[in-house]
Computed example of a mutant assay.
Amino acid sequence: MALKKSYSKDKVTCNVTFSVSKDAAHGAETITVAGDFNGWSSTETPLKKGKDGTFSVKVPLEAGKEYQFRYLLDGKQWENDWAADKYIPAPFSHTDNSVVIC
């Protein structure tokens, strides 16, 4: 798993590429990213599977903020990003949420 960030010239937008490697996907057919940037939708932001088996999606976010997120594999298994900027306790479960800082 990995996060790649790039900023717009005016530093207003942070383009975050969310990636899940083939190994980290554990054989999943579909992966989505859900977070406070998309209302925690489990369907709105699907990752596209590449030829090498890595899943990824680029999401434009407002710079200067922190965003919580998690990956949903095959619509049933939640996973954190191993390369997140930090982790914070999830408010409705006994796990942590991943955080990306833009």
Rank of each mutant, 00 (worst) to 15 (best):
86 K>S: 13
67 Y>T: 04
27 G>M: 11
58 K>H: 01
41 S>Q: 10
86 K>Q: 06
17 T>D: 03
7 Y>I: 03
63 A>G: 11
82 W>T: 09
10 D>M: 04
30 T>M: 01
58 K>W: 00
49 K>E: 11
52 D>G: 12
98 S>E: 08
24 A>R: 03
35 G>K: 08
83 A>G: 14
18 F>T: 02
100 V>P: 07
96 D>L: 02
27 G>N: 09
88 I>Y: 06
6 S>D: 12
53 G>D: 11
45 T>D: 15
83 A>I: 00
26 H>Y: 04
92 F>P: 00
82 W>K: 09
56 S>M: 06
27 G>K: 10
68 Q>W: 09
97 N>W: 14
8 S>R: 04
86 K>I: 01
67 Y>G: 04
89 P>E: 02
49 K>W: 02
61 L>A: 01
31 I>R: 05
10 D>R: 05
101 I>N: 13
77 Q>V: 15
94 H>D: 15
77 Q>H: 07
68 Q>L: 05
102 C>H: 02
101 I>V: 15
20 V>Q: 10
58 K>S: 12
77 Q>D: 09
29 E>S: 12
25 A>N: 00
46 P>Y: 08
75 G>R: 07
36 D>I: 02
90 A>V: 01
67 Y>K: 10
69 F>C: 03
15 N>V: 07
96 D>K: 01
53 G>Q: 12
70 R>Y: 14
50 G>P: 03
25 A>F: 01
97 N>E: 14
